[in-house]
Design a protein around this nucleic acid. Structure first.
Lengths: 197, 197
DNA sequence: TGACGCACTTAACAGTGTTAAGTATACAAA
DNA sequence: TTTGTATACTTAACACTGTTAAGTGCGTCA
């Protein structure tokens, strides 16, 4: 039952965004009364967290796949692959992305950390690759504090994704060009390749 | 009257965020009925836009001040000053920042461009300094397309501000260090100084 | 048979954005 | 001075929202 609710919630989320996901509509979609949901989830926030977790899991799959596709290559290539996969996921799943990284339900002062092991795991993927970069490159701006540097990269990628998704980018700027250039520059920042566009 | 509504709305926004800014509470705060507001603003979205414009104006002041404080210095310093001012504004005015750059009222498909001249003006400040950087530096990664590059920088700064404000950053990462390092790296990306921490 | 617990329901509360319809006041034209 | 009209504001309501208190069956176990 819990999973039936979650399935339906996911579908409604992807279809029309979190803003228009109401408990009553969700209940109607699964053919039960609204109150029933409250026997399986404490609140809408609780459901929100479940959706975040689901999204983190999907992102994790995507990132691991991207890494698997280039095992054995030099660290700079792997970093680029990771960044590219992250941005692609964010742009292709705007509703999930919103729930995972931009929506901030008013009731949550701070995110429950123990629930976010998967989120930290995703960040660790970046940190791990960055550690390799730190070893393999001698550039003056190579990573030093991998956790912080991973967060910095994440922030930059997040900036691009969220601005594009929120349609805040000036019309005259080509989106694909912007995204490609941004990712290239972020990667180049820590793992400079000899040729840069 | 319109300005009295806006003043009160601003106060409520800063006090408790946009999420808990309701037309009824706003009306009560100024001592009128809720319907009155609808005679001065078409909808809550309309009021939202007015708040965005106010925020953009404040940001514009901050950015111009930051630039004025370092006229005559080399372009890299000016770029750093601009970035620092932007991030500081975002972190010190989280409610305004949310309305300006992260909140996305469901009704707005795309932002009304003509209303956002001030927003574009702020981006132009970055583009102008970047044009100077392009002239003054010979680094391989110097700015090329200043509008796109300005957007890239903006996206990266926005990523940091929005993640920090949304409290998404891992507790173990020092926020001040993260912010400082991120800004330094963004600046260094386009206008490398010889010494980098 | 009786008691208990589980899954689910209806009805309601307090709040939201928004609008239709009505009132009272001010000011211009007759 | 009286009338007409526009303006500023009101009340009452609609259709929603998340959430909860109380109640209804149902199956299982003593």
């Amino acid at each position: 039952m819990r999973s039936r609710i979650l399935d339906s919630a996911t579908r409604m989320l992807v279809d029309s965004g979190y803003a228009s996901l109401s408990m009553r509509k969700l209940a109607q979609a699964i053919g039960y009364s609204a109150t029933t949901i409250y026997h399986h989830f404490d609140s809408k926030d609780d459901l929100f967290h479940a959706l975040v977790e689901e999204g983190m899991s999907r992102l994790s799959d995507v990132l691991r796949e991207a890494l698997a596709a280039c095992t054995g290559t030099e660290s700079g290539v792997r970093l680029r692959s990771l960044c590219h996969a992250y941005v692609t996921f964010g742009l292709q799943n705007p509703e999930y992305y919103e729930v995972m990284f931009v929506a901030a339900p008013p009731s949550l002062e701070r995110f429950p950390i123990d629930k976010y092991r998967r989120a930290r795991g995703n960040l660790d993927l970046f940190a791990t690759v960055l550690a390799d970069v730190a070893v393999e490159t001698k550039h003056r701006a190579r990573p030093l504090d991998t956790r912080r540097d991973a967060t910095t990269i994440w922030a930059m990628l997040h900036g691009i994704v969220s601005l594009v998704n929120a349609r805040r980018v000036d019309r005259r700027v080509d989106i694909d060009g912007l995204v490609g250039d941004s990712v290239a520059r972020v990667v180049d920042m820590y793992a400079p390749s000899d040729v840069m566009p």
